[in-house]
């Protein structure tokens, strides 16, 4: 039987965040800060069309971090040799 997925309430999303934090062993603000930093970093190189999607999972002793960034345009710039 296929169950209907309930629309996730605000409380449920809070639980999801909490469990994610428990799994990673990080503080509450880690994900938010990480997302902001990644966004800032990619904004230097591309014109982002959307916010980056970051997924962090832990498998035993390894963290798997995948970042999906959508951009409208790659910025062109030259690097000064001096």
């Amino acid at each position: 039987m296929a169950f209907r997925k309930n629309k996730k309430s605000e409380e449920f999303l809070r639980l999801e965040n909490l469990i994610e934090k428990d799994r990673l062993g990080t503080t509450c603000d880690f994900s938010t800060l990480f997302k902001i930093d990644i966004e800032n970093l990619f904004s230097e190189y591309c014109e982002l069309s959307d916010k980056p999607i970051i997924s962090l999972t832990r498998e035993k002793d390894t963290f798997i971090i995948s970042v999906t960034v959508k951009a409208n345009r790659i910025k062109t710039f030259a690097v000064s040799k001096n």
Binding site: F3, R4, I19
Partner: peptide, 17 residues
């Protein structure tokens, strides 16, 4: 509660955990 959207559905639990 599940029908009213308050309870956690089985599918949500499966996804979450």
């Amino acid at each position: 509660l599940m029908m009213s959207g308050y309870g956690v559905s089985a599918e949500n639990v499966k996804d979450l955990l």
